[in-house]
């Protein structure tokens, strides 16, 4: 009985020493964590940040978006809202929708692909507070006008700061590129 418990204790002590050896070996290995404010990680490839608009090939200030509202409809959290201006001439020719001035909000999609003159995007707002980063909007876009940003270090004090006006963001980006 005593021999057995002594043996058990000794084996237990030995298991602790084995564990300590693992700690000692790892103690000598190099550091693998990153000291955040002083250095940042670079493996951000594939990171899905909030969405942003892709500039068109001709004009970096203009988005590729054709205001088809596909993204608005697919979004599970309903966090995208966009408005578009119909080209004036075409709007006059149209017989069915003269009442709602220039704004095509929900009818946008049906008209957009059929016409040659694209409706011009007026505003594109993503409410990042509700976004679940599923990426369905990016995949549903027929013209590839949306992409993920790699904006990881997004922080703010109020909810309003996360209501992102993506159109002006695009224009700011284009301006920065020019300078």
């Amino acid at each position: 009985m005593i021999v057995k418990s002594l043996r058990e204790t000794m084996l237990g002590m030995w298991s602790l020493l084995v564990g300590m050896k693992v700690t000692a070996v790892n103690f000598k290995s190099t550091q693998i964590t990153v000291h955040y404010p002083r250095e940042v990680v670079h493996s951000l490839e594939g990171y899905r940040g909030h969405i942003e608009l892709v500039p068109s090939d001709e004009d970096p200030y203009k988005p590729k978006c054709i205001a088809c509202n596909n993204c608005v409809r697919i979004c599970p959290s309903a966090c995208i809202s966009l408005t578009a201006i119909k080209p004036k001439k075409k709007a006059a020719e149209k017989t069915e929708a003269p009442d709602s001035a220039d704004e095509v909000k929900t009818k946008g999609k049906k008209e957009a692909p059929a016409k040659k003159a694209k409706p011009e995007l007026e505003s594109f707002v993503c409410d990042y507070n509700y976004c679940c980063l599923c990426g369905l909007c990016v995949q549903s876009c027929p013209t590839g006008a949306l992409r993920y940003s790699s904006n990881v270090y997004l922080a703010g004090f109020t909810r309003q700061e996360f209501v992102l006006d993506l159109l002006s963001r695009l224009q700011n980006q284009a301006q920065k590129k020019e300078q």
């Binding site: 493996s43 490839e45 594939g46 990171y47 899905r48 679940c132 980063l133 599923c134 990426g135 369905l136 995949q139 993920y148």
Partner: peptide, 22 residues
Amino acid sequence: DILQRITGSRLTYCYYRFGGVS
């Protein structure tokens, strides 16, 4: 890190689609 590169997220994945993967 490996999964993030192809799925786009690190924790709450949304990678599979009806009929395949994204």
